[in-house]
């Protein structure tokens, strides 16, 4: 159990650093979506099912959708 939590926390921090480094904005948005999904799994491990459902539905579906529509209306590559 502790090993699974350690691997998940490491994956979360690595993909947050990936959202920092990528120059293509669509890839950065997908990395932020991965952070939100792994946070939803960690909320389940901390015995909070309401919060896990809310974070998965709002953070991983709606925020990613809003960001992709916004990137489509402005530039795609950061300069």
């Amino acid at each position: 159990m502790l090993i699974i939590v350690t691997i998940l926390v490491l994956l979360m921090i690595v993909s947050a650093i990936a959202a920092l480094i990528f120059k293509d904005l669509i890839s950065a948005v997908i990395a932020a979506c991965i952070v939100s999904l792994i946070a939803a799994v960690l909320f389940y491990f901390l015995q909070a099912p309401d919060v896990a459902m809310a974070e998965a539905a709002i953070g991983a579906a709606l925020v990613t959708g809003i960001f992709v529509i916004a990137v489509k209306r402005t530039k795609r590559f950061e300069e």
Binding site: A19, L25, A28, V29, A32, V35, F67, A70, V71, T74
Partner: peptide
């Protein structure tokens, strides 16, 4: 600016 908003969400 969009990268700054992604940082706010994180």
């Amino acid at each position: 600016l969009i990268k700054v908003i992604i940082g706010l969400s994180i």
